[in-house]
Amino acid sequence: MKKVKINTVINNRTYEFSVAPNQTLLRFLREELGLTGTKCGCEIGECGACTVLLDGEAVNSCLVLVPQIDGKEVLTVEGLAKDSKLHPLQESFMDHDAVHCGFCTPGMLMSAKALLDKNPDPDEKEIRTAISGNLCRCTGYVQIVEAINDASEKIKE
């Protein structure tokens, strides 16, 4: 099996890698780059714990083959904070007690970020649709929806 050369940007840093093609982006992030913020749940596209942004769009990193990120930009939960300041979504999740066990949180944050980047003023239905591919076994979603709504207000200010 030949390794594949790729150029990519991960969390705003440019990389050139030579990768084994038979691995998912999820495993690559966690096992090769040590970016374990992205969580590994079902690995069949059902739970959304592995959600990252690929060229700005939310995708399940367990369904991306690593060489497919060639020429593309990846953003993971580790890339949300800027200059040691948390992203407003992260602040808001804490304020609203939207993090219980926390397993779903990174994926939720990334789906929420994809939404707010496109639609800075979503209504509740749009928020619920945006996180419909992210399962949470703890919160019942109410705090999460509120947190996203609140963050959207803060970002607008």
Partner: peptide, 9 residues
């Protein structure tokens, strides 16, 4: 179809 993530891909 599926979820937003599935529809994006």
């Amino acid at each position: 179809i599926g979820s937003p993530q599935i529809r994006n891909k």
